[in-house]
Design a binder for these strands. Structure first.
Length: 262
DNA sequence: ATGGTTGGTCTCCAA
């Protein structure tokens, strides 16, 4: 069984349902994971996706914030979610394919503006969230699993436009990068994007605030596709659809792709 | 050093 998987922070699935349909039509992935849907589940436009053949849909939502959804044209069952940091946030949903592979769709807290948990509780929440990921993966080693989503951390020097200028900027601080690696190593997760594209600058997000996002190209790689060690060799053909950042009324994130032969 | 843009909801908060 082979399938193409995409992760995309959509920044409102209701406002950008048309862009999701464009991606499904033009790129025809088998499974699409969305974050920041900003909608209760019952108001997510699942029918529009079903009309394109994507008849399987699992999601967790809430009004205005967070929200994650998995849209699939392959049979998929709801495999639950974890209430990270016990806040009741809709930041995780899992779907299981017929081959037993579980896809975890995650939205890690952005962490606010100040990289100091003493003065910014949102940064503390982010660190606690990623530490909980580490602890849970230590408790139970993931198998036959894929973890995707907006992890809001750019771990490598070539995952940001300027390593030096971003060392104190939330998303690329050493404490976050350390936490990211601890979580990854605890689960023996393999970064499929970097397994496929080991060298060079790679971004999946460009700020709305840039005058010329494409020309300035001050991006960060915040969106990730990880696979558990037992199936990592099945991952290939990674790419980031940068063009989607230039679509009409775009999300500030671009879709990240990988293919799996399982 | 600062401000820059966008979305959702209800006047500002989150990103």
């Amino acid at each position: 069984m082979a399938f193409t998987l995409v992760t995309w922070n959509i920044n409102s699935v209701r406002l950008r349902a048309g862009l999701v349909e464009k991606l499904l039509t033009e790129e025809a992935p088998d499974v699409l994971c969305l974050q920041e849907c900003k909608s209760p589940v019952e108001l997510m436009p699942a029918e529009a996706f079903a009309a394109l053949g994507y008849t399987h849909f699992v999601a967790r939502g809430q009004k205005g914030y967070n929200g994650v959804a998995i849209i699939s044209r392959l049979p998929m069952r709801d495999a639950g979610h974890i209430d990270w940091c016990a806040k009741g946030d809709a930041r995780h949903v899992a779907g299981e394919l017929e081959n037993g592979v579980v896809i975890h769709n995650m939205y890690v807290p952005a962490g606010g503006d100040v990289a100091d948990r003493e003065v910014n509780e949102k940064f503390g929440h982010k660190l606690d969230f990623v530490a909980e990921m580490r602890d849970r993966f230590r408790e139970s080693l993931p198998e036959k699993s894929i973890l995707v989503g907006d992890l809001n951390i750019a771990p490598r020097e070539d995952d940001v436009w300027s390593h030096k200028k971003l060392l104190k900027v939330v998303s690329h601080t050493p404490i976050e990068v350390e936490a990211y690696h601890e979580a990854q190593e605890a689960g023996k997760w393999v970064d499929i994007t970097r397994q496929d594209i080991p060298e060079g600058q790679l971004y999946s997000w460009w700020s709305y605030r840039a005058k010329d996002w494409d020309g300035a190209d001050k991006g960060r790689r915040l969106d990730h596709i990880w696979a558990s060690g037992d199936i990592a060799a099945a991952g290939h053909s990674s790419r980031i659809l940068r063009a989607a950042r230039g679509w009409e009324k775009p999300s500030d994130h671009a879709p990240v792709f990988a293919r799996f032969d399982l």
